[in-house]
Nucleic acid binder design. Structure first.
Lengths: 292, 292
DNA sequence: GTTCCGCATGAATCGATAG
DNA sequence: ACTATCGATTCATGCGGAA
């Protein structure tokens, strides 16, 4: 079956309208946090954040399949020594829209931002809010089973960074070897605490979103040939992972530089390395792209 | 200086009135969750939880010193496949009362409750909400420093291991020149994720509150001879820890059996062993106790 | 080829200084 | 008084050069 990657350039509140109802299996996104990314997103203020996001979540509710899941990565800012409340207000408002707040995963960041202050410690966690349209949704728990015990975790970690990358470079299929490595061993289901390090080795811009995060949720909530959407694509981490995992993907990005980079990043990888003869596919892709 | 432990039997909404304004340095408590402990507080319903708790938090605001801290351990229940929202609503309402929501610590439970459900994983974390009256409050960060991460151990191992051992073996008493060099680097400040196991060795009832949890916050937010309050004392874990750490403590419990157990656990220690002649003090205490 | 160490670099936060 | 910008603080991580 042919794998699709649709990229849109523009404000996702507009671009999302081009996507059909009930057509997406999983939404994984990390919208710009309040007062962050001023240069790119214009810096959404703390006070207006909920109001700014609600039109987006309304469209997301429309395009998501009834069996689908929406994972929202977010964390509230500290303002005047206090945690802001806009994330909580957002959850309450999204429930009014019809969303079900199924669960809150914790992303426990192994390497959080350093610093010392007199009245607080370093912030080492972020919220991964799970929303659904229906009480019943697709969840493939066996796909994310983990080895038992700490020793296994360490060894798996060592393998994952070096061997995984090497394997990907070899056959381009991705994520195959590690999983099969541990398949025969004793595994358990994970909890709702995800323990990952942030990625800080991106050369061009900072992808605070580690690859393992979307990978984990894509494995958990989708199967091959399902469709994954990221309305705040950024540098395209989610889209890239989805593609390598043989999921169709849709990415929306408002910043032309980011959009262009992702678009160009995709064509070569798919065509030159993996399947050179699909070069024509790139053209088709391009036609599908909506360049503002 | 004499250490005090005041115990009250009764509904904390009533008993708290007996405590003076601005007299408590730290409140650490784990109130009955919604629809839990049916037999004690009558099983607070999910819908009425906020309304039930607000009178308590209002009194807590009154008795807390301006420099004091309130740590609230809580986690929302799952109802009909969805996380309830009463915790978020509670935070919003408490801010209207005048509380400052300074921080949200995560208690990452090492050994969480086992089980398997089709649409969610095991819940391995709880909220530890930090509230304050003022922007500035007492915080003794050095009291909770933790060993540095694994990477440092590996890197420092070759350099420090030999010298450190040799020096310690030599004089046996303290830290030699080399060690003191490394001492400062071996500990770092913790983050806002507290990683502790749940306690499962309680004989009579299951107090899922591990001793280390109140201990950590008592170290962090109080000094010796400060006063710690737990308005939902239960089996008295917080009170017991506070007492052993030479903090004055105040405990309130509505269930006579729990109250009596804690009272008897304390009386012998203070009176018979340490100062037998203070037996009269026990009587005074009794008079202060409100037995329903 | 390993292992080891130096270095830069973060979705941060606070307090002071400046307009 | 109220916002805007800047420096200081701090530590896990990956990369690259060195032993």
């Amino acid at each position: 079956m042919e794998l699709k990657t649709d990229l849109y350039l523009g404000d996702c509140r507009e671009e999302l309208r081009k996507i059909s109802d009930d057509s997406v299996d999983l939404i994984v996104t990390s919208p710009p946090y309040a007062d962050q990314r001023q240069s790119t997103y214009g810096g959404i203020s703390v006070n207006g954040y909920v109001e700014w996001f609600l039109p987006v979540s309304k469209e997301l509710l429309r395009v998501l399949k009834p069996t689908g899941t929406f994972i929202l990565n977010i964390k509230e800012k500290v303002v005047d020594g206090e945690r802001s409340t806009y994330v909580m207000e957002l959850i309450l408002e999204m429930r009014k829209q019809g969303w079900r707040w199924t669960e809150e995963f914790i992303w426990h960041k192994k390497n959080c931002f350093p610093g010392k202050w007199s009245n607080r410690f370093r912030d080492a966690w972020e919220r991964l809010l799970q929303f659904n349209k229906e009480k019943k949704f697709n969840m493939y728990q066996d796909a994310v089973r983990v080895p038992v015990g700490e020793w296994a975790k360490d060894r798996l970690k060592n393998l994952s960074e070096t061997d995984k990358i090497r394997d990907n470079a070899k056959n381009g299929s991705g994520f195959g070897k590690n999983v099969s490595n541990w398949l025969g061993r004793e595994t358990v289901y994970p909890t709702n605490v995800v323990h990952l390090a942030t990625e800080c080795n991106n050369k061009n811009h900072s992808a605070a979103f580690p690859r393992e995060l979307p990978e984990w949720f894509i494995r958990l909530f989708t199967q091959e040939n399902d469709t994954v959407l990221d309305p705040f694509m950024g540098s395209g981490t989610t889209i890239e992972v989805a593609n390598r995992m043989k999921r169709n993907s849709i990415g929306i990005e408002i910043v032309p530089e980011y959009y262009e980079e992702v678009r160009q990043q995709f064509a070569p990888v798919e065509n030159y390395i993996m399947e050179p003869e699909i070069k024509y596919e790139t053209v088709k892709h391009k036609r599908r792209h909506t360049v503002r």
